[in-house]
Design a protein around this nucleic acid. Sequence first.
DNA 1: TCCATTCACTTGCTTATTGCAAGTTGCGCA
DNA 2: TGCGCAACTTGCAATAAGCAAGTGAATGGA
Lengths: 137, 137
Amino acid sequence: MEDDKTVEGNRAFERSCCPITNGLDIFGDKWTLLIIRDLILGKRRYQDFISSAEKIASNILADRLKKLEAAALVRRQAYQQKPARYEYSLTEKGESLRPVLAAIISWSQEHYPGTQLFPSVRPRQATDQTVKVAGGV
Amino acid sequence: MEDDKTVEGNRAFERSCCPITNGLDIFGDKWTLLIIRDLILGKRRYQDFISSAEKIASNILADRLKKLEAAALVRRQAYQQKPARYEYSLTEKGESLRPVLAAIISWSQEHYPGTQLFPSVRPRQATDQTVKVAGGV
DNA sequence: TCCATTCACTTGCTTATTGCAAGTTGCGCA
DNA sequence: TGCGCAACTTGCAATAAGCAAGTGAATGGA
């Protein structure tokens, strides 16, 4: 008997082989795409995600980051040893979700005029200065 | 004290005014976009949605249809009296989610070659003016 | 040396949402 | 007098989310 797991490292086609269903099985919840958004905006570290406006709980963030890594949308790498500290970045597969976010933004802006994008964040320097720069998702 | 409800009939900006967050507050779960997909594919009735491949539970379907109606993405109308029977269709606002679905399909097909779209469903004969021809979401 | 702080998470517990099975209502039909 | 269909509703167990607090390694300061 065959197992129904592991297409590129994650469970595949849990509910059906419909591409929409498959997408939703990966990012169909209230938080995952917000983490992708943050990564696109330039955030990289745990505290960056924690401090976003939507106030994700830390256990949920940890869970989603693990799932995103397992699904190969996100990569985790140490930016220093002693103490080991990690940052996250999008893989190509994760980057390619940009059009999905763009479509959602477009829909929201059309139907909810009050919405507005957050600005991009400039990557950290050694001295930890986050300077904001224009440019949306 | 002001309430934080009702932009076009539904709770607005629950978590932040980010357009992505706003979109996810409306359709950010595992089922809502599948109902939209079914509607785009030509399904209209409760049993149509129930019989989709993903096997949505009937209570969740009822809940999502109510929320979609409240958010003005979907409209509910009787197609017969005695006994009253209802069918659902997309509003313009719901139709305009097409690009979101298209982006998800595109992403899934690129990264998960095994996925494939369901075909459109032919509308029922009793009550329909809008005849749709084949073509995916 | 001791203490406070930072960062990247875990853990424990409460509350909310899902999933599953079964039940309900109104009517038409044999 | 049932039987069945369509569109839901209800009850309850299982799963997930939300919240607060805690952990461990290291670093900087009094």
